[in-house]
Write a protein that binds this DNA or RNA. Sequence first.
RNA 1: GCCUCGGUAGCAUAGCGGCAAUGCAGCUGACUUGUAAUCAGCAGAUCGUGGGUUCGAAUCCCACCCGAGGCUCCA
Length: 581
Amino acid sequence: MSSFIKGDAEYYKKLWHSASHVLADAVKELFPEAKLGIGPAAKIGFYYDFDVKRPFTEDDLRKIEVKMKEIISRNLKFEKEEVKKSEAKRLFKDEPYKLELIEEIEGQLTIYKHGKFVDLCKGPHIESTSEIKAFKLLRVAGAYWRGSEKNQMLQRIYGIAFPSIDELNAYLKHVEEVGERNHITIGKELEIFSQHEEAPGFPFFLPKGTIIWDEIISFWKDLHRKENYNFVMTPIILSKSLWVMSGHWDHYRKNMYFTEIDDRSFAVKPMNCPGHILIYKEKRRSYKELPIKFAELGIVHRHERSGVLHGLFRVRKFTQDDAHIFCTEEQLKEEIKKIILLTKKIYSAFGFSDYEIELSTRPENSMGSEEQWAQATNSLKDALRDLGLSYKIREGEGAFYGPKIDFHIKDSLEREWQCATIQVDFSMPEKFGLFYIGADDKKHRPVMIHRAILGSIERFMGVLIEHYAGALPTWLSPVQVRVIPISDKNNNYAKKIVDLLKGQGIRANADYGKETLSKKILSAQLEKIPYMLILGDLEEKNSTVTLRSRSGAIKKNLLFDDFTNSLKNEIRERCPDLSIK
RNA sequence: GCCUCGGUAGCAUAGCGGCAAUGCAGCUGACUUGUAAUCAGCAGAUCGUGGGUUCGAAUCCCACCCGAGGCUCCA
């Protein structure tokens, strides 16, 4: 997103914040009864919240835009003024939301004026409304007052503004491109996954999607085997008593599904940790065994509220590439570092080199002692520091059992997706009475690390689809080669080539249809197939193939073995970029 | 869960009180093709579900289901 800011980021913030004041001014002129909420600059663009009797329509937005243009053309100066609390209360006597804010603000209150419009505001702002050369109101959405669902819901108008028309157009083009890359649309077109009314939040994976899924997983397993993870499989339904003991009943019940079997209460697992803990407890563990790493592609179910469901990004059933590492406190930092390095390795194979790291600390509703939390948080910080990685801190955003590091992948459109999570946990081992026998022949408490790298395979696939706009790297493509005979005279040769490719483990098929060559190329192109082999009389006579890649590059009269050798190499090396030019 | 918008053939859309339409995909036939759409024909829809208003409902009203974009929450 930052690529839309040319030069001084602070200037854009000022511009957007000022545009939000102009928006509020226009709304007050057109809808005098509207009450003002707040209207800051967003990450990109701006918004303003209003309490109105009737929600804004598309039509209203267009009218507001016209009014905004008029206000901008008045070339009004933004003027700052310091006011006393009593004066502020008088100025905003008809604005209940502003009054609420005024009551709470300590110290100097400031207001900003342009023309007749006055807003409670710290600023800063641009000099004059005329600096807003290009803007657009994008959409209207509900938003809770002060972000709490206990409060009144206000109508939020989102907009964008730039110092030039060209920048606005570039941004709008970007928004359009993001829309075209939407994984739900692409997933349907390319027959990767589907959604059904009968299963809200439970996506179906179609044959092509399942191929991608299997490729991701087999790659993931290979790397984990090398890192000494032990794969396990634990049940999806486990006794409720287990979840009471783990603390999930107290802290996570509202997200869980429950069921009865033979008059006994069971829960559908929302996480895999208790299952792995049961395996750990199956026998006495020695310090010599540690660290013990149990990995599972764990299928979890979480009752997410209906309004949050979204394609593959937010679902009610998903597969975590989960693992739990039981280790000593001394091993903790090194184990965290190993996980971070593994994460980087896996991400780079998928073409992600850019990510943000966040460290989340103790939340309100949590278990464990202050000391344990401090120790766990420090081990995460130390590991990040040792690897020279910078991170942001999110206060109070940790899991209920421990602090965590999250990786947010940046995709090719510079949007961020939370995928990997590494969580340190001292409390679960205590709750379950886990121990190992140390060199001193005494019982010691192990530390537990919960970690997932892709996060949810479902979400990760969604991210991949959008990152590549459906044109996945060859190793992940459901169909790697489409063989196209030019006329049906060449069908036999095509079949022979397909069989040879399949024999070498390459996913290939042929288009024996009666359509023209152009038409067949178009349909392979729309299916985002990396390579096409065009076979006509010429190729058949010379026993060669003509290659067309989805980038449009053409190589004529290629020896079949030369093609397969380079293709197999591309697949084996998991080259992420060769075919997406 | 809350707010806004939407749901019409496999897909993408039009129609918004009076015979359900167009493109792509599908099927059939002709064409036998040299690098992003050959031509012609055919078939395909109880217009998300249920109820109501009306002589008449895809269209208006109510309820529910599902989806999209947000808020809150989150892998």
